[in-house]
Each structure stands twice: as C-alpha cells, then as structure tokens.
Design a protein around this nucleic acid. Structure first.
Lengths: 110, 110
DNA sequence: TTTTATAATCGTAATTTTACGATTAATATT
DNA sequence: AATATTAATCGTAAAATTACGATTATAAAA
C-alpha cells in the first residue's frame, strides 16, 4: 500500500521519523553540508555543487523544507536558503536522546 | 526513476543517509524503542508491541538489520534481536558530527 | 520593454516502499 | 510422529520516491 500507518504511532515517533527520513538520502546530506559549511545563507548556487539536475535538487530542497530542517526566503531572483536554527536543534536533541538511550546488552545477551 | 544516483556522492554521505533512512519510519523507531528499553535482547514478542502485521514488522526488522543497526540471532524457534553495539555507536557519532557542524548564521543572514 | 537568469512546478517514468495475507521452514511441544 | 509456534519469505497492490526535461513565474539586467 505504501502508505505509512501514521495514526498508530506516537507524535514523537512520527516527528523523529520525519527528521530521519529527510536525512535519508545522500543528496540531501550533501545539500545540508553545503548549507553547513558556509556560515551564512546560500543564495542560489546549490545546484552547481550537486551532480543532479536543477529540478531534482529543487525537489530535495522542498523535502528538507517540509521537514523544517531548512528554510528558504525569497530574495530577488534568487532564494536564500539556510538551516532552520530551531528545528535543527530540535532534531539534534531528539535524535541524540534516542541514541543515548542505548546501554549495552548485559551478559545474558545473545 | 526512483533509483538513487549513489555513485555521485561520497561514502560518508551514503553511509549517513543509510542510517537516517533506516530511522525514517515511525514503525522502525518504535521497534528500536522496544529494543532499547529492555536492557537485554528480545526474543520474539516484538510483533505484539506494534500495530502492524507480523509480515510487515518482519520487513521493518529486515531493513534495520540491513542498515546494520540491529542484529538477529536465531535461538531455537525464536529469533533474538538486539541493537548492534558497534554500528549503533557509529551511527550516533556520524549523525552527531553532522548536527554539531552547525553554527548559527551570522548577522548578514536572510 | 525585451531579454536573461533563477528556481519552482508540471508531467512522466521507473523504482522503491509500505502493507498484508498466505505460505514456508524450522523448531518446540504433545 | 503429529501438532503447534515462530518468524522469514512470497505474491500482490497501492502509494511514495527519485529523477529529469519542459514549462512557468518572477525579478534583474540590458
């Protein structure tokens, strides 16, 4: 069916999965790296950094935007992208907590 | 086309995306939570904790296994699942570094 | 005002994902 | 040995994802 049965899970599980899913493609990781390595926003020229067509990059940007991880403000004929400070920190925190909740198996394990 | 042009990205980008993608579904987050909240491995009874059919859960488990985040060892008629210590820590580290590489935009921003 | 440049959207196609019932394989249990 | 239990796999269907060329909308530049 391909449709995630979202109703059955907690809000936190859904949110966490949304952030992770947005990060779940090499192109989007690459896009974020470009946004991260410059300290300021990027106006345009993201496409030039990636081995994908303009429309495909635009689609990936849209997904990152929909997950909230980045924002894009219109600035003349270009669009100014940058990391969304709040959401980025929230994603960091939530994912961090998941990973930190792990403690090694005890001796009775596998 | 639906096929990720994986050749064009760095190994690290691909690895990072693979971990994130594995985390990119509420059911898989829920599965991991079950595995995380018990300190030991879980033999069976994962299906009972989730609002999905046995075959669907099995499929999600397979994806987590393929990403390396969990392991499942056969133990009689049950299968013993747990977090893969090494991979878990690697995923934590890699994702953590991505998030940490962010520094707020300077004043010339958007 | 016409042209150029930028980026979103549309249309399309192939692949992957999500989901489930049914079946299968393997091992306990009776 | 026959039966039950557990979990993977198979088959199938619907929806989502990935990708790109073409088109569109907007704004800057000529």
């Amino acid at each position: 069916m391909g449709l995630t049965k979202t109703a059955q899970f907690t809000d936190e599980e859904i949110l966490l999965a949304r952030y992770a899913k947005a990060l779940g493609h090499p192109a989007r990781i690459a896009i974020l790296r470009v946004l991260l390595e410059r300290k300021a926003c990027i106006c345009g020229d993201i496409v030039d950094e990636l081995p994908l067509s303009q429309s495909t990059v635009s689609q990936h940007l849209k997904e990152l935007k929909e997950a909230g991880l980045i924002q894009g403000d219109i600035d003349g004929k270009k669009v100014c992208y940058c990391i969304n400070d709040q959401v980025w920190k929230q994603a960091q925190e939530t994912l961090s907590l998941l990973f930190q909740s792990y403690t090694s198996c005890d001796s009775s394990c596998c």
